[in-house]
Simulated assay, not measured.
Amino acid sequence: MASFFLTSGPLAEQARNERVYRGDLIVFRGFAAVADLVDALQAICQQHLGADPESVHERLPEVAVNAAAQALRDEIAADDTVTTLLRTALQDVGVHIDDTYGDGLELRVQSASSHGGGRRISPLGVHRDTWGSNIMAQTNWWAPVWPTTPERTIAFFPAYFERPVPNTSAGWDFGELLRRLKADGPDTDYPLLPLATEPPVWEEAMPVSIEPGDLLCFSGAHLHASVPNATEHTRLSFELRTANRPDVLAGRGAPNVDGTPVRTTYQLFRGLNHGERLGPLE
C-alpha cells in the first residue's frame, strides 16, 4: 500500500528506491541545498516573466507567455549553475550521484485559468511517465518554485498504482516525437506523452500541495496529472526524472500494470556525474 512519507533527513539510495518502487510519495523538507536551487530558479523566472511571475498572465497575452515559458526552459536547461545546484540538492537528500542518470531539470509554467491554450503553459493530462519511458526504475522529482495550493499543483491517483488504466502508450513513439520536434519545433502537434483514455474521476485524485524548498519524490509509474489551474495565479514548478543504473540493469523497479510502449528511452537519461547516456533508444 502506497503511503505519504515526510522526512527532514536524507534517505540512502537503496532504502529510498525500495519505497519509491512500492508507490510511496516522499517529501524531503528543510534542506538548504534545495532552498538554494529554488532561489536560483526564482531569479531566472523573474528575468523572463517579470518581478511577479505568478501574475505574468495579466501582463502578457497567452502566445507571449507560451514563448517566454519556452525561453525560460531553454535557459535553465543550459545553465551550469542550476545543474550544479541540482546535483548538490540530490546528493544532500541521499541520491548516489555516480549511479544516477537524469533527463535534466525542467521548469514548468502553468498559466492561470489554463484549461487549454499554449502547449508550454497547459496542464498535463492523466498519465504515467513510464508509459513513455518504459523504465520501471524511473524516479520523478517535483517541487514548486512559488507556493502552490490544491487548485494549482500536481495530483495523484494512488489507488491506481497497481490497477491498469486504458491508455495510448501502444501507439505513442518517442522516436517520432523527436523527429517532429526537430522538423516542427517545440510547437509540434505530436503528443508530448501518452495519456489515459479512460482516466479516473477527479474525485479520486489526491492533490499534493507543498512549499518552495520541499522536494517531492515518487515513482514514474504513479498515475498523476496537473490540477487544471482555475486560480488567478500562474503556477511555476520544476521537475526531473532519474534512474538508478544498477536497478535498471537488474530489472528492479515499480510494477508495470498497463504500459505497452514501443521503445525504451534510455538515451534520454545522462549520468549526473559524467554525462554519459544510460543507453541507446530502443
Rank of each mutant, 00 (worst) to 15 (best):
M1L: 06
F4G: 06
S8Q: 13
G9H: 15
E13Y: 04
Q14G: 14
R16C: 09
V20T: 07
Y21R: 10
R22H: 09
R22Q: 13
G23R: 10
D24V: 08
I26H: 01
I26A: 02
V27M: 05
F28P: 01
F28T: 01
R29I: 08
A33R: 08
D36G: 15
L37M: 06
D39Y: 06
A43N: 13
I44F: 12
Q46T: 05
Q47E: 15
H48R: 06
L49M: 14
L49W: 03
L49A: 00
A51G: 14
A51Q: 13
D52I: 11
V56P: 01
V56I: 15
R59P: 06
E62D: 11
V63F: 13
V63H: 14
V63A: 12
A64W: 08
A64S: 13
N66M: 07
A68K: 00
Q70L: 12
A71L: 14
D74Y: 10
E75Y: 07
E75M: 10
I76F: 08
D80Q: 07
D80L: 07
T83F: 11
T84Q: 15
L85F: 03
L85Q: 00
R87V: 01
T88Q: 08
T88I: 09
Q91G: 04
D92E: 15
V93F: 00
I97K: 12
D98Y: 12
D98H: 02
Y101D: 06
G102M: 00
D103W: 06
D103F: 02
V109R: 05
Q110S: 07
S111F: 03
S114D: 11
G117K: 04
G117W: 02
S122D: 07
S122K: 14
P123S: 15
P123A: 12
L124S: 13
L124T: 04
H127M: 02
D129V: 07
D129A: 09
T130E: 05
S133C: 10
I135E: 00
A137K: 03
N140A: 15
A143N: 09
P150G: 04
P150Y: 07
E151I: 11
I154V: 15
A155E: 05
P158L: 02
P158D: 04
A159E: 14
Y160C: 00
Y160K: 07
E162P: 06
E162G: 12
V165T: 15
V165G: 05
P166T: 06
A170D: 13
W172G: 01
W172N: 03
G175Y: 09
L177G: 04
R180H: 11
L181I: 12
A183L: 10
A183Q: 13
A183H: 12
P186H: 11
L192I: 10
L192K: 09
P194K: 04
P194Q: 03
A196M: 03
E198M: 14
P199R: 04
V201K: 15
A205H: 04
V208D: 01
I210G: 03
E211P: 05
E211Y: 10
P212T: 06
D214G: 13
D214W: 06
L215I: 10
C217H: 03
G220V: 04
A221S: 15
V227C: 01
N229S: 07
H233T: 10
R235L: 02
S237H: 09
S237F: 01
F238G: 04
R241I: 00
D247I: 05
L249Y: 05
A254C: 05
P255M: 09
P255F: 01
D258W: 05
G259Y: 02
V262C: 15
L272I: 08
G275W: 10
G275L: 11
G275M: 11
L278M: 09
L281G: 02
